[in-house]
Design a protein around this nucleic acid. Sequence first.
DNA 1: CAGTGGTCTAGACCACTCC
DNA 2: GAGTGGTCTAGACCACTGG
Lengths: 262, 262
Amino acid sequence: MSSNPSNLSANSASGAGASASGASSPTFSPLYQQIKGLITQSLQSGEWKPGELIPSEVELAARFKVSQGTVRKAIDELAAENLVMRRQGKGTFVATHHEARAQFRFLRLMPDAGEPHNADNKILEVKRLRAPAEVARLLDIKSGDSVVFIRRVQSFDGAPTIVEELWLPGVIFRGLTAERLVEYKGPMYGLFETEFGTRMIRAAEKIRAVAADEVTAELLSIALNTPLLSVERVSYTYGDKPVEVRRGLYLTDHHHYQNELS
Amino acid sequence: MSSNPSNLSANSASGAGASASGASSPTFSPLYQQIKGLITQSLQSGEWKPGELIPSEVELAARFKVSQGTVRKAIDELAAENLVMRRQGKGTFVATHHEARAQFRFLRLMPDAGEPHNADNKILEVKRLRAPAEVARLLDIKSGDSVVFIRRVQSFDGAPTIVEELWLPGVIFRGLTAERLVEYKGPMYGLFETEFGTRMIRAAEKIRAVAADEVTAELLSIALNTPLLSVERVSYTYGDKPVEVRRGLYLTDHHHYQNELS
DNA sequence: CAGTGGTCTAGACCACTCC
DNA sequence: GAGTGGTCTAGACCACTGG
């Protein structure tokens, strides 16, 4: 066999050198990265939905006209980024938030002792707002654009522990109501994923220590000025597009935020 | 070519089946994992020291009598775990804490605005103690064993921001004195690595919000009961052996703990 | 230029799952 | 047994580094 098997942008012809004449950066990228991009597009477009099986490595290799090894390397990276899940003997599945495995990734609060919690969710408020400047900036939308605002309290084993406020882009979460949130069983990101076609891929959190204000103290049944963990999160979907701003206040008397540095 | 190239534990002879007669789990593991283990041993034993170049993939493949691809996969994982660093055209290097790149991994406190900090370290105390029960448990040593205790304050741009206490196994950090710590320029983990042959590989942190006590308030020039981030860290070296317990109190008025969920 | 890690291919066989 | 991902090999060529 010899050169140039692909229909994709060939980064190097058989023998000859690299960039032609003319301008600057020719935007190199290895074949497997291009394949990874194509697969990601199919994920994003919904060609394969969360929880579903994607085509086998052999099929994808045929579709893209590359070797199985190249597809494999692309999928390896997607699996490392938690976009897909491989299961030997069965196939590769689109990752989903409807799984015990996925829960712990986005809620790092753990009980100091004992097993993970018996969570209980109370929705306090769901309404539409014009995005405050700061929220608009974080969501990369225009200040004043419509956002869905949610306020809720989470209890673990009966003890109120988290007060949380969320802002979501109104355009994406158009039909989101308090009823939908209340009646929905399971993780909120699961609802976002199946009902609104928006999958959270990654998030960045900024953590501080703050004193409980009156409202929060009331909601958590604690004294005014009790130290709380303030957790500000921005979550991103495909293409690093921000689609959630969240501010949580965590009572850490019997819980802690668990983090691994590696 | 045909079967059985290695001298390592062959998981499967040419044609025939798996586990022989007799007892239970035959402790399978793919070749590249065994190679990874052997390389890790060489790292741990100091055959290749932090910052040094390790043998090339071709050399290692020859040494272990496996293909380059197998060595490659082993090193890929070691690189993903930050035990080594690959540099195209140059080779693969043993990871070290003497690098800007490595600093941010183990100090997640960032200024709310502006560039990373102008750190300044003040050692308050260095002494030998008998390990308190809790520390002994975390370090996996016997209660009452010798530990080195360190207390220090870190300031960023002149503002005292972190009060920290550390406990280190006395056996490993025998010659550690206040002078050594004070005169040493650069990251503390760098000193541990070069002077005591102990490299921190990973760490687990538990984060809570607490109120400043009198002593801490004094040290950080803040009011009593100011909310602070309490960060308890246990750090591990090769073989997941715990070698550091640390408790930091972070003032988060102008800084925040940055975390990526992915 | 030689040597390194990085990409890509092709083919073999293994372990696991399901029918 | 057929199909999947997982391992391993062997060989080619590329991109980058340094003498």
